[in-house]
Design a protein around this nucleic acid. Sequence first.
DNA 1: CTTGACCTTGGTGTGTACTCTAAGGTTTAT
DNA 2: ATAAACCTTAGAGTACACACCAAGGTCAAG
Lengths: 137, 137
Amino acid sequence: MKIGEFANQLGVSTDTLRYYEKHNLLTPSSRTEAGYRDYGETALQQMKFILRAKNVGFSLAEIKELLQIKFKKHQHSCHEVKDLTIQKRDLVAERIAELTRFHQSLSVLADKCCGGQEPADNCSILTTLEDIDGLTQ
Amino acid sequence: MKIGEFANQLGVSTDTLRYYEKHNLLTPSSRTEAGYRDYGETALQQMKFILRAKNVGFSLAEIKELLQIKFKKHQHSCHEVKDLTIQKRDLVAERIAELTRFHQSLSVLADKCCGGQEPADNCSILTTLEDIDGLTQ
DNA sequence: CTTGACCTTGGTGTGTACTCTAAGGTTTAT
DNA sequence: ATAAACCTTAGAGTACACACCAAGGTCAAG
């Protein structure tokens, strides 16, 4: 399968596939005589693996690690894989916590503001940002 | 106040201050004869405004908008400010939702894995990423 | 036999918020 | 007088995940 068809089947761009190849995430099974990339079943499965891993939140760098393990499963332990997963989960949790604080602060600001058409001279959002430090906790 | 002292007082780097100036977020009150930046009380208040806005999750681009409004309050309405705030809040909410899906998927993966020291040949995390599509509904 | 759709490489651009470097000028203390 | 500590500018580098472009080669259909 040439890159265009392969990309279409997976719903990604050819640029993405070349990018993944450059970054050692997915190498086409072979090349045609003309030098065209030729993707086979193995590549298809691997690309699906990558897309699923992306879907659960892994970065490309993390996926690369997962692939290394996947390639040589017997040289790695379940522990390693679970560790990667938990580390990522905890990182995600931290980011959620941070965004939740943002959301909370923004809600407080929005709720205090009348939102009317009058000039913003006494807008509570602006005055709050000007005056106090206590918004975050 | 020269840039070094000013930066210290606010807990930011001098690079950050020059960056903000370049991007029209904060201009020092004046310059000394030697061309050194000289920050005054107005700059201090504005920088605090910026840092507070950052703390509640606004990006620098959004803060720039807020500053434009703040500079000419009578030309803008409360409505505008509240709109910006709510738009940002909703954006943050979306991102939280996405990350929460990630967190959920990662938890499911982690919980299924034994995490033991044995080889990863049958690691449920890897096989799940290999086999199914149903992690994110 | 040519048109158009595909493919190749290498390189640049995007957005965010800085950080770091180089090469040089100024100020302050000793 | 000189060294340390500060300041200046312009420009490059960082991370992430691609998107886009130019210049050219290849392939199938009409």
